[in-house]
């Protein structure tokens, strides 16, 4: 599973962090950081994170 975030769209709402804290985090500078190729066991959480992104900036590729 590959996670792609369109950083031109991302506005740092941080909702993905609540859904998948193992994959997404807001760093000390306030910007989003994420694990680009998380373990497949986290798929449900990452799909939830993509769903709740207000800007719909997260895509998942297999």
């Amino acid at each position: 599973m590959k996670v792609i975030v369109d950083m031109d769209r991302c506005q740092d709402h941080g909702q993905c962090v609540f859904s998948a804290p193992e994959v997404f985090r807001i760093n000390d500078a306030g910007r989003l950081e994420f694990v680009a190729e998380p373990d497949d066991t986290l798929r449900d959480a990452v799909e939830d994170a993509a769903d709740v992104c207000p800007l719909q900036a997260i895509t998942i590729e297999d």
């Binding site: 506005q11 740092d12 709402h13 941080g14 609540f18 807001i26 306030g30």
Partner: peptide, 10 residues
């Protein structure tokens, strides 16, 4: 900006 204070109270 885009870093709401409410987040830490959630």
């Amino acid at each position: 900006g885009s870093h709401p204070l409410s987040t830490k109270y959630r």
